[in-house]
């Protein structure tokens, strides 16, 4: 489903070029569970942003479902994110003014889903993450684990094919982290491709494949050195 070939992402910091990603070649299949690990500054987040079409590579190729992302225009790219890709963040990024249902409704507002359908789908999504009793709660009234579950409900409510999680358990206690991982792994088992960026070795170990980045290069787990399962 995802194919990166010699992908580079270069930032300009003052007079120096920083290679956040350097000649990355990767292949990820539909339904995989992948952990991306590596020290801080190794390019994990940059990789995730490029995979999520929030950022564009400086050079190299990124194919999503067979299409070259560089050729996709701004408007269609938004639609791609809307329909195909879900995001989960370390800091949840819920809108504090909206209750749980309202937060889950947000992506549907921008894709033009009707009001009644929005509410039903949001409630169903919240039920599936075990928050049936928290529909009307605002983020400040929820625990960290519950907030992340709302965020997960929001990320999957559009039925994406790819879920990108950036340190999803980084801000949670061990117990909640366990629950969250179980939740997204269940979705992975139903066919959702899951890519988790993490520092946490126990989280990484749960993945089917670990991609280790070092200095913007794939040190382990890339397509070329992929272990046969």
């Amino acid at each position: 489903m995802i194919e990166l070939i010699n992908l580079c992402r270069t930032y300009r910091m003052g007079s120096e070029d920083v290679h956040a990603l350097n000649e990355v070649t990767l292949q990820i299949d539909q339904g995989e569970h992948i952990a991306v690990v590596g020290p801080s500054g190794s390019g994990k987040s940059t990789l995730l942003n490029i995979l999520g079409c929030l950022d564009r590579p400086t050079s190299g190729s990124y194919r999503f479902s067979g299409r070259e992302v560089a050729d996709i225009g701004e408007v269609e790219l938004s639609l791609l994110r809307q329909r195909w890709i879900g995001f989960v963040f370390q800091f949840f990024h819920l809108l504090p003014r909206l209750d749980a249902v309202g937060n889950v409704e947000v992506p549907m507002i921008f894709s033009g889903v009707g009001r009644e359908e929005r509410r039903q789908r949001a409630q169903r999504a919240l039920e599936s993450v075990g928050l049936k009793h928290r529909f009307k709660h605002r983020p400040e009234e929820l625990s960290g684990g519950e907030r992340q579950r709302v965020a997960i409900a929001r990320s999957v409510v559009m039925s994406p094919r790819l879920l990108l999680a950036d340190e999803p358990t980084g801000n949670l206690d061990r117990h909640s982290a366990e629950e969250i991982m179980e939740l997204i792994e269940r979705m992975n088992a139903e066919g959702l491709t899951l890519i988790v960026v993490t520092h946490d070795p126990t989280v990484a170990k749960r993945a089917g494949r670990i991609i280790r980045l070092e200095d913007g290069r794939v040190a382990e787990g890339g397509a070329d050195v992929r272990p046969q399962i």
Binding site: E74, V75, S78, L79, H93, P107, F110, S111
Partner: peptide, 16 residues
Amino acid sequence: RTEIGLLRALGAGKRQ
């Protein structure tokens, strides 16, 4: 800023 970034990640277009 975060909200705007979030909305963009959730698939809101620039025009929206």
